[in-house]
Design a protein around this nucleic acid. Structure first.
Lengths: 140, 140
DNA sequence: CTTGCACCTCTAGTCGCTAGAGGATGTAGG
DNA sequence: CCTACATCCTCTAGCGACTAGAGGTGCAAG
């Protein structure tokens, strides 16, 4: 029941102060009550919401997806099909990103290995960049 | 020796017309000569530069890194140590990103598997988001 | 009472483009 | 030669998700 300043909320949630204000501005967080001197004063329950948002952001969910997920959380009688769909879509995104990054990794490794540490005209890094055809896996 | 319009350059390089103009604006590409009617007219050699930039962007290099790489390419007598360093730094970034995405993937898979497709109050997706402690690998 | 930090609002900047307005040019057909 | 239409030009503003900074107020300790 203790009221919390924005700085304290930031410390406890791991979300930076300006970011908290930003979330309020875009309506992701409802505006808290204010102290006599017009300073934001949060309830402990607001920390849960902040933690939820932070965790979702860490998992790479977009703000709009988080908005939907928060609405679902607020109304526990709804079907969780949308939450499931959002998470699945995110999973597919992540899997694709991993595949593409693995291709990049292979390419970069070849470039770095092939670098004779001499002059630029023998440098495989520059050479490969200049000629996509020299890529081992050209499908990126 | 044939001059090329910006549209043709875009088609041949795979870089979009506004993006080519953007690259010129930020000084990544030098301004080409102009036709009588003030339209950009590119040399075939400009296509190589565009392809270089496009390839480097596909590999995730930042504009500033590409600026450096292009300078190195322009002066082939320089040591390629900087090119090597840039590529290595990018490789490390990519490796870290892959690791972190793999952790995310595991988390998302658990969330999606655990979803009983019922109501939100039994939904593991929402539950895990609300409580980071329920993560299998909490170090993301 | 003063120091100094934390808070307030507001605007503008970041990155790498992308979209759109409003107008000029170039080309192909009639 | 005229018209239609695609392509080009410049310029400004917008995207997402913040971050930085200016300029001012609140508050707690010494």
């Amino acid at each position: 029941m203790k009221k919390i300043t924005i700085g304290e909320a930031a410390r406890q949630s791991g979300v930076k102060v300006p970011t908290i204000r930003y979330y309020e501005g875009i309506g992701l967080l409802s505006a808290p009550s204010r102290s006599e001197g017009n300073q934001r004063s949060y309830e402990p329950s607001d920390l849960n919401r902040l933690a939820f948002i932070r965790h979702a952001r860490e998992l790479g969910f977009e703000i709009e997806a988080i908005r939907t997920l928060l609405q679902l959380q607020d109304d526990p009688h709804q079907s969780c099909a949308s939450a499931d769909a959002i998470a699945k879509a995110r999973l597919i995104e992540v899997e694709q990103r991993i595949r593409s990054l693995n291709a990049l990794k292979a390419e970069l490794e070849l470039m770095v290995e092939g670098c004779g540490h001499g002059r630029v005209d023998q440098c495989r890094v520059i050479e490969v960049l200049a000629d996509h055809g020299k890529c081992a896996h050209p499908h990126h």
